[in-house]
Design a protein around this nucleic acid. Structure first.
Length: 98
DNA sequence: TACCTGACAAGAG
DNA sequence: GCTCTTGCCAGGT
């Protein structure tokens, strides 16, 4: 049943926590590094296990977060120096490579 | 039990 | 650039 092991979840949380302030990463990158078969699992982990992780540093590959989160997320990122243009984060500039 | 939903990605048109 | 479709996983109704 649990195709996602506890270690994978911990890996995701560790990776998110390891993203330096002022930079961002994508769901796809985190899923790949953590060994997950789908980026959606990262979103699931964030939604259910959401602790004090810097979840705002994780954005879709398009750089455009979901509308209901974009406001808070972009606001937090801006406070860290990540400037979003037209509601979109320029990943080319701020993307953190693990 | 079955279907829908959700912090997504990648490819095709 | 955009939208649509498919694959992926777990939880809720």
């Amino acid at each position: 049943m649990a195709r996602v092991t506890e270690e994978q979840v911990e890996a995701v949380r560790a990776l998110v926590a390891a993203i330096p302030p002022g930079t961002v990463s994508t769901y796809g990158d985190i899923a790949e590094v953590a060994g997950l078969s789908s980026p959606r699992i990262v979103g699931w982990i964030m939604r259910t296990d959401s602790s004090d992780l810097p979840w705002h540093r994780v954005v879709p590959a398009s750089g455009r977060p979901a509308p209901h989160l974009a406001t808070r997320q972009l606001e937090r990122l801006r406070a860290e120096g990540v400037l979003a243009t037209d509601g979109r984060v320029p990943l080319r500039e701020y993307r953190h490579i693990f």
